[in-house]
Amino acid sequence: MSSPSTPTRGRPARLDRARTLETALDLLNQSGLDALTMRRLADAMGVQAGALYRYFATKQDLLTAMAERMLEGVDTTAHAADSGDWSDRLATLARSLRTALLAHRDGARVFAGTHATGPSVLGFADAFVGVLREAGFRDDDAARALYTVVNYTVGHTLEEQAALQAADGDPESVGTLREAVTAGTPPYPHLSATLPTLTSTDFTRLFEFGLDLIIGGLRARRAPSAGD
C-alpha cells in the first residue's frame, strides 16, 4: 500500500521538499504568516499532515527553509571587488535583501524568526563580510556590520510590510498618527513640524536614509589605507 507521498504507477510524487517549500510560499503570499499552518499546507498538497514531517520536523524548520529560499535569487556575484566602491557594493547587497523580503507577504517576519544556514543565506553573508574585509575593515568590525545592516534591513522591512498591510485592511489607519499628533494634549510641536515626513509612505526613501547613516558611520570607522 502506498503512503500519501509515494507515487503510484504513472503519477508523479505529490510530496517532495522543493514542492513543499513552493506551496508554503504560495500560501504565505495568499494569506500571510499567521494563517500558514502545517495542516493547511498538507491540505493544499493533498497529503496527511504527518507526511510533511519527513522533510520538516517542526514548523520552525519549515520557516527556516522558507527564509533560505527567499534569498535564493539574490545575486552576490554582482558585488565582486571590481564592481565599484565598497560602500556602493554594500548598499546594493542591503537593497537586494530588502527586495527579496518584500517579494513575499510577511517575508521579513519569516526571516526574522529564523537562523538559516543554507547556501543562499551564508552566501549573502559571506559576500557582505567579504566586501568589508577587502575594503580594509577589521574582521570583528566586518562581522558586526553584517549584523547591523541585516538587522536594520529586516526591521525596516518588517515595519514597512506591517504598515502596507494595515493600510490595505483599513485605509483610515494611515491617518492615525496625524490625528494623534494634531489633536494631542499636551501639544507635540516637534512632531507637528515634521509630520509630513513622519506620515510619508515613501519607504524606499526612509530605508535609504537609514542605510546612508550606517554606511557613513562605517566609513568614519574604517582605517585609512595607504592609497586613501
Rank of each mutant, 00 (worst) to 15 (best):
A166W: 13
A183D: 15
A78K: 14
F137Y: 15
V154M: 01
T23G: 02
R98G: 02
A166T: 13
H115Q: 10
T117C: 07
L132P: 02
G136V: 06
T182M: 11
P171C: 09
N29Q: 08
F128E: 00
L62A: 05
R144N: 10
F128W: 03
F128Y: 13
G113H: 05
T185P: 00
N151F: 09
A116V: 07
M66R: 02
S87Q: 14
A145F: 00
A142P: 00
A78G: 14
D126P: 00
L36D: 05
G210P: 00
L63G: 07
D75Q: 15
G227W: 13
G175R: 14
L158W: 14
T199H: 05
G227L: 10
Y55P: 00
V129R: 11
T92W: 08
Y188P: 01
L33Y: 04
T197M: 07
M70K: 02
A162D: 14
A103S: 15
T8I: 10
A142W: 04
T201R: 13
A193T: 13
P196G: 06
L206V: 15
L177P: 09
G130I: 07
A91D: 13
D61L: 10
E68N: 13
D88F: 04
G227D: 14
D139A: 09
R133A: 08
D126T: 15
L97V: 14
G107M: 02
A220F: 08
E22H: 15
S225H: 07
R11P: 00
S87T: 12
A163F: 05
D202P: 12
L158T: 06
A116I: 03
F128I: 03
V174E: 14
V181M: 09
G84E: 04
S2L: 13
G118R: 02
R69D: 09
A135M: 01
L213Y: 08
A166F: 13
L211K: 04
N29G: 15
T37F: 09
V121N: 08
S87I: 02
M70T: 08
F56L: 03
L206N: 10
L52C: 05
S173M: 08
S31R: 13
D85I: 01
L25C: 02
R133W: 01
E208L: 09
E172F: 03
Q48D: 15
R54F: 10
A94C: 14
F207L: 03
I214R: 01
R133T: 15
L63R: 06
L41A: 09
S200M: 09
S31M: 01
T185L: 06
M1Q: 14
Q30I: 10
T76E: 07
F137S: 02
V121M: 12
R205H: 12
G123S: 11
A127W: 00
R89C: 04
L218F: 03
S96W: 00
A24G: 07
E22V: 06
E179P: 01
H79Q: 07
A162H: 15
